[in-house]
Design a protein around this nucleic acid. Structure first.
Lengths: 219, 219
DNA sequence: CCGGATCCTCGGTGATACTG
DNA sequence: CAGTATCACCGAGGATCCGG
């Protein structure tokens, strides 16, 4: 099994040897939030052939990026998780997310977003430099999904599930992507019916400032 | 020419569609420092087939990552350069460099480093958080190559060529990689003969602090 | 059901030769 | 110098099968 190499003594080339093969980064992406089982990965990566998934998992494990764990729990399952080294990719992936979203076609917003892309989207769009001294609790609804985003002294805590005492609830009747891309303002989202909000409306502008992928890319 | 897609409405997947194909990121890497001609890229990317280079260049151009420019200068050349959008990848590539270098085998240091990897290496290893209030001019020699790194009020200016009035000159008799990886200290590099230095030796420790890829990766 | 392995086809990659 | 043309090969894609 001679892996494809670039033969350059360079960190970038080496990095791409580790996670540059097709589907590899998306597998890492899937493991960013939580460990996953083989069939979960298959389901969450529509289009990946089973043999490619199996091959990538073995390669990533051999390279020390992910770990295969056999859970002793009832039902004896196998889960894949990131190693500490693999988890260091998180920051890179968030930046890649920001970069790539600029080149995303304006979707027809039809595909209702599942939870994880939404969590990642907000996480990647968070701008810490806008959050100094900020304290606010947001709750975001996507149809039947609920997630929370709490900013506490400039730190972001984000994940699925409701917020205990949200200052502002944003009910996304449509995708949040245009807001994150900077194509529209948060106020416009409310005015156009894209968002329905409950709570402290004053925080709406803050939300738009806190979560925004860089727009200089649009040029 | 149907490009390979992932079919996910996700910035990471989209980003990998743009620059995830084989050799694409290394082409971007080559353009990070300066525009390059076709044959320069061929020479600087040993092993890339000419048709693959041609294909990637066309794809990257179509995607808005790079630009093909016909220079009106004598000799009528074609050069490829990053677009502003493509240049936004710089930060991501530097982080990937940091991440990938941890998985680099301890090379036999034989291949004399060309200039650009060295510039990139230092650039990627720079830790701004260590540079507050720092003013220092370094000059680094690699055999016949010379580069400079000037830290001015925490800002780094780095590139090929000598420094006008260096505070410290580091003559690398061997690779700088072990230092950047944190395997050795700057002092040890001098003691072992890996570096020869001229100038203010007091700045040596500072240099080691300023330029160091994160070591928690090693574990 | 889970966690893959196997088989087959197709197209991208790698290597080389060639051209305006 | 800046690519095209040609071709062998192997990895991706897609489906199916299999042991626990």
């Amino acid at each position: 099994m001679t892996k494809r190499r670039y033969g350059q003594h360079c960190g970038i080339a080496r990095g791409m040897e580790l996670v540059g093969e097709r589907w590899a980064i998306l597998i890492v992406r899937e493991l960013l939030l939580t460990p996953r089982r083989y069939t979960e990965l298959l389901r969450r990566l529509p289009g990946i052939p089973t043999n490619v998934l199996a091959t990538r998992l073995k390669e990533l494990e051999a390279e020390g990026v992910i770990e295969r764990k056999v859970t002793p729990r009832p039902g004896s399952g196998v889960v894949y998780d990131l190693t500490p080294y693999g988890r260091e990719l998180e920051d890179i992936l968030l930046r890649l997310w920001r970069w790539g979203i600029s080149a995303l076609p304006v979707s027809q917003d039809s595909g209702r977003p599942s939870m994880d892309p939404a969590v990642r989207a907000l996480q990647a769009s968070f701008r810490p430099e806008m959050a100094a001294e900020v304290n606010a609790k947001f709750e975001i609804w996507f149809g039947t999904f609920v997630m929370h985003a709490t900013v506490d002294q400039g730190r972001l805590e984000i994940g699925p599930g409701a917020s205990p005492a949200p200052d502002l609830i944003i009910d996304c009747r449509s995708s949040m992507t245009p807001l994150l891309k900077g194509d529209v303002t948060a106020d416009e989202c409310v005015e156009s019916g894209r968002f329905w909000i409950t709570g402290d409306r004053e925080l709406l502008g803050l939300f738009g400032d806190l979560f925004r992928a860089p727009s200089e890319a649009a040029q």
